[in-house]
Design a protein around this nucleic acid. Structure first.
Length: 229
DNA sequence: CCTACGCCCCGCCATACATC
DNA sequence: GATGTATGGCGGGGCGTAGG
C-alpha cells in the first residue's frame, strides 16, 4: 500500500510516471473526503493526483481509468444521473443569479431602462441578458456563474465567439462573472495571459467591480411622471 | 415534435518546460 | 538534438429548460 504522503509530487524535477496503484490511492483519498470520485476538473486541482491530461496520456483518459480500476461509480460523467443533477443545479443557479443582477440594475437605472433578454436582431436568436440605457450609449451585460477558473475560460471563449460580429458589438458589453471566489485580480491576471484577448468595448468584471462600474454611470430620468407606474 | 441556450465533462491538440 | 510531462485552449456531446 502506498502512503498518501508519498503521493504528493513535486511540481518540477524528478518526474516519475504515475502507476495505476498510485492513481487508485489518490482516487481513494478523494473518495474518503467527498464520498464520490472526482471529475476531470477536480482531478486537476486535487493535490494527490496528476492532471487529467496526464491520465489521458498514460491511461487513455478518465473514463478508461475508472473502468480499469473497476470503480464502483459511473464511468462517464458527461451523461446520466450526474449530468442531469448538474443541469438542474445550473438552471436554478442561473435563474437566481440573473435575478440578483436584475434587481440591482433596476435600483440604479430604473425598471424602464433595463431590458432583459435584449435582442440585437429580429431573428430572436442572438441576445444579451441585459441592455441598460444610460445618458451615454448604454451597455450590454452578459451574466454567468462558472464553477471554477477553468470553466470560466470555457464560458468566456464561448461568449467571445458569440459577441464577435459587428451587430453584437454596437454597444459596450460586460461579461459579468458572478462566482465570488474568483476575484477581479484573478480575472485580470487571466486576461493578461489569454491568447484570445477581449475586443475593444468588451470587459470582464467581477460582481464587486460591476457594482462600482454602474455607480459611475448616469441613469436616465423619466421626463413625465404620469408615464411612470 | 423541433431548435436554441447555458453550462459542464471530456478528449484532442499545441505549446512550454525539464530531463536525457 | 529527442523524449516525457504539465498546462491551457478548443470543440463536441450531453443535460434540462424555454419557446415555437
Amino acid at each position: 500500500m502506498i502512503a498518501i504522503m508519498n503521493l504528493r509530487r513535486q511540481k518540477m524535477g524528478n518526474q516519475k510516471s504515475w502507476t495505476l496503484e498510485e492513481l487508485a490511492a489518490g482516487l481513494g483519498h478523494f473518495y474518503k473526503e467527498h464520498g464520490r470520485y472526482p471529475t476531470a476538473t477536480e482531478v486537476d486541482t486535487f493535490p494527490y493526483l496528476p492532471s487529467a491530461r496526464s491520465i489521458e496520456r498514460s491511461f487513455g483518459g478518465l473514463v478508461s481509468l475508472r473502468q480499469q480500476l473497476n470503480l464502483k461509480t459511473q464511468l462517464d460523467f458527461r451523461s446520466g444521473a450526474h449530468s442531469s443533477e448538474r443541469a438542474h443545479k445550473i438552471n436554478k443557479r442561473g435563474h437566481e443569479t440573473e435575478q440578483i443582477v436584475y434587481e440591482f440594475l433596476k435600483k440604479i437605472f430604473g425598471k424602464e431602462f433595463v431590458h432583459r433578454e435584449y435582442f440585437f436582431t429580429d431573428d430572436r436568436r442572438t441576445r444579451a441578458d441585459f441592455f441598460v440605457y444610460d445618458t451615454k450609449q448604454g451597455f450590454c451585460t452578459d451574466v454567468f456563474y462558472p464553477n471554477n477558473r477553468r470553466n470560466l475560460i470555457g464560458c468566456l471563449n464561448h461568449k467571445l465567439n458569440k459577441y464577435r460580429s459587428e451587430y453584437m458589438r454596437q454597444y459596450p458589453v460586460i461579461f459579468l462573472q458572478m462566482n465570488n471566489t474568483i476575484s477581479q485580480e484573478i480575472l485580470d491576471k487571466l486576461l493578461s495571459k489569454k491568447k484570445k484577448a477581449l475586443l475593444n468595448g468588451q470587459y470582464l468584471m467581477s460582481w464587486d467591480t460591476f457594482q462600482n462600474f454602474c455607480k459611475t454611470k448616469r441613469p436616465l430620468k423619466i421626463a413625465a411622471q404620469k408615464y411612470g407606474k
